[in-house]
């Protein structure tokens, strides 16, 4: 089986602030792992380390069998990344944005054209392809952003709040597409604070609180472990235990 994501004792310090204090988790191929936590918990830092954008202060990370610090280009070829804070180039159309990133991922014109058509079919990009980003609704922008991450058929997907601003149809399309990705053996790290969504798509979850992973396990196990009717309640109780 192809490797997914391996995180062991991951530490990240920003000067005096400890953003991640030795977290461990893994995401297997064909699995969706939801990393859950409030703002400032360390989700974005974890994703940035996995994408090779920032360096860890300690611990070990492997993404698709490669080390993001030593082999960042290998990792980035195998990785699709959507972050909540990401934006698009205002004066380009949706198609131009996708073509731009597609070329940076090494796709030739034919492959690019075919792939954009496929993504249009999956995410109903439609009018967004011919519209300049500055004239798009936030939902249209988000569709293009998400499609951008799938352009090069990455083995690993890091999705940070990917459904933010999506309309109900686009959101459904994305969540359904995750099932296809799982069947194809892709490893998906899904970061969100919308817990019902995580409950629907995730095989396993990790509760991240103030840089510590306070729980890792299957969704049903989490509900049982914290005697909670929903994942949201389980998360609140898990954080409550730590605070106590």
């Amino acid at each position: 089986m192809e490797p997914g994501i391996e995180v062991r004792g991951l530490i990240k310090r920003y000067r005096k602030t400890l953003a991640l204090s030795g977290i461990d988790f893994s995401v297997a191929p064909g699995e969706v792992f939801a990393l859950l936590g409030p703002n400032g918990a360390g989700k974005t830092t974890t994703l940035r380390i996995l994408a090779g954008l920032i360096k860890p202060s300690g611990g070990h990370v492997r993404v698709a069998g490669a080390d993001p610090v030593r082999e960042p280009m290998v990792v980035r070829h195998r990785l699709g990344y959507v972050s909540g804070g990401m934006g698009l180039y205002e004066r380009l159309t949706g198609e131009e944005v996708l073509s731009y990133f597609g070329r940076l991922y090494g796709l030739d014109d034919r492959a690019l054209h075919q792939r954009i058509a496929e993504l249009d079919a999956i995410f109903s990009l439609g009018r967004a392809l011919a519209t300049r980003v500055e004239e798009m609704s936030s939902g249209m922008k988000q569709k293009v952003l998400v499609a951008r991450a799938f352009l090069h058929r990455p083995r690993i997907l890091l999705l940070d709040e990917p459904t933010q601003a999506l309309d109900v149809f686009a959101r459904r399309a994305l969540l359904d597409h995750l099932e296809t990705l799982k069947r194809d053996g892709r490893a998906v790290l899904y970061s969100t604070h919308v817990l019902p969504e995580a409950e629907e798509v995730a095989d396993r979850v990790g509760f991240l609180h103030r840089g510590r992973l306070v729980y890792v396990g299957r969704v049903e196990e989490a509900k049982t472990r914290f005697s909670a009717p929903t994942l949201e309640h389980a998360f609140i109780r898990a954080v409550g235990e730590v605070e106590a």
């Binding site: 280009m73 070829h77 990344y81 934006g87």
Partner: peptide
């Protein structure tokens, strides 16, 4: 500011 730099830096471009 627009958040496009992160998207660019995560591509396999040196």
């Amino acid at each position: 500011e627009k958040g496009t730099l992160e998207a660019l830096l995560v591509t396999p471009v040196g």
